[in-house]
Simulated scan of single mutants.
Amino acid sequence: MTEIRLEVMTQVQYEQYRESAEKGYAKQVTESGDMSSEEAAEKASRDYARILPHGMQTDDQHFFQAYVGDDAVGMIWYSITPGAAGSKAWIYDFEVGEHFQRRGYGRAIMRAGEEFCRSRGVASIGLNVFGGNDGARALYEQEGYEITALQMRKHLGGPESR
């Protein structure tokens, strides 16, 4: 297994991440067929403002840059909240740099993140994966994540069809 080191993002790293993350999220929403690119950009802006009203200093939000040696290979963002059956974590975002994909870094980042969560008493971790992201879904299933909900759609044609 690849040796990964998670480090809390610096403010500069967070600002660079945030700029690209909203655009990437809007792109995924658009590609899912849920809304136009303009609507998706507005949704992304609203969602990030709601979830992160104080940026990376928002309570219970944890942003990490993942390293192998001196190379930044990816990132992961957890939100941890208390629950009746123990704290729960939610992975809002998880990325492996394009040049580092398909080399075991994603799996290693997820496992390092799980150790962080365990050290905080987290009982479960959840995440969302868009329907067309088969590679991510396969990784999550291999790592023991189970489907808890599944949205489906059928296009019928007409002016609202995308």
Rank of each mutant, 00 (worst) to 15 (best):
Met1Trp: 11
Met1Leu: 07
Thr2Tyr: 00
Glu3Tyr: 07
Glu3Cys: 12
Ile4Trp: 00
Ile4Lys: 04
Arg5Tyr: 03
Arg5Cys: 06
Leu6Phe: 00
Glu7Cys: 12
Met9Glu: 03
Met9Leu: 03
Met9His: 00
Thr10Cys: 10
Thr10Lys: 09
Thr10Leu: 04
Val12Tyr: 08
Tyr14Lys: 04
Glu15Gly: 08
Glu15Trp: 13
Gln16Asn: 14
Tyr17Thr: 10
Tyr17Met: 12
Tyr17Gly: 08
Ser20Asp: 10
Ser20Thr: 15
Ala21Gly: 08
Lys23Gly: 07
Val29Leu: 14
Val29Thr: 14
Thr30His: 15
Thr30Asn: 15
Glu31Tyr: 11
Glu31Met: 13
Glu31Ser: 13
Ser32Gln: 05
Asp34Cys: 05
Glu39Pro: 00
Ala40Asp: 03
Ala41His: 09
Ala41Glu: 13
Glu42Trp: 01
Lys43Gln: 13
Ala44Met: 14
Ser45Glu: 15
Ser45Arg: 15
Ser45Lys: 15
Arg46Phe: 12
Asp47Met: 13
Tyr48Ile: 12
Ala49Val: 06
Arg50Thr: 14
Arg50Tyr: 13
Pro53Thr: 14
Pro53Ala: 13
Gly55Cys: 11
Gly55Asp: 07
Gln57Lys: 11
Gln57Gly: 13
Thr58Glu: 09
Asp59Met: 04
Asp60Asn: 14
Asp60Leu: 12
Asp60His: 14
Asp60Val: 12
His62Pro: 03
Phe63Leu: 01
Phe64Met: 01
Gln65Val: 00
Tyr67Ser: 09
Asp71Leu: 12
Val73Tyr: 02
Gly74Met: 01
Ile76Thr: 01
Ile76Pro: 01
Trp77Ser: 00
Tyr78Asn: 03
Ser79Trp: 12
Ile80His: 02
Thr81Asn: 08
Pro82Thr: 13
Gly83Lys: 11
Gly83Arg: 11
Ala84Cys: 06
Ala85Phe: 15
Ala85Cys: 09
Ser87Leu: 06
Ala89Ser: 06
Trp90Ala: 06
Trp90Lys: 04
Ile91Ser: 02
Ile91Thr: 07
Tyr92Gln: 05
Asp93Cys: 00
Phe94Lys: 01
Glu95Ala: 08
Val96Tyr: 01
Val96Arg: 00
Gly97Asn: 07
Glu98Asp: 15
Glu98Val: 11
Glu98Phe: 04
His99Val: 11
Phe100Asn: 04
Arg102Thr: 01
Arg102Leu: 03
Arg103Phe: 02
Arg103Gln: 15
Gly104Trp: 02
Tyr105His: 15
Arg107Pro: 02
Arg107Asp: 02
Ala108Lys: 08
Ile109Tyr: 01
Ile109Asp: 01
Met110Ser: 01
Met110Ile: 00
Arg111Gln: 03
Ala112Ile: 00
Ser119Thr: 11
Ser119Asn: 12
Ser119Ile: 08
Val122Cys: 06
Ala123Asp: 11
Ala123Pro: 06
Ser124Lys: 15
Ser124Trp: 08
Ile125Phe: 08
Ile125Ser: 12
Asn128Val: 03
Asn128Ala: 10
Val129Arg: 09
Gly131Gln: 10
Asn133Phe: 05
Asp134Gln: 13
Arg137Cys: 07
Arg137Lys: 14
Arg137Val: 02
Ala138His: 12
Leu139Ala: 04
Tyr140Arg: 06
Tyr140Phe: 10
Glu141Pro: 09
Glu141Gln: 15
Gly144Trp: 05
Tyr145Lys: 05
Tyr145Trp: 12
Glu146Cys: 08
Gln151Asp: 09
Met152Gly: 05
Met152Ile: 12
Met152Asn: 06
Arg153Cys: 09
Lys154Val: 04
His155Ala: 10
His155Thr: 08
Leu156Ala: 09
Pro159Lys: 13
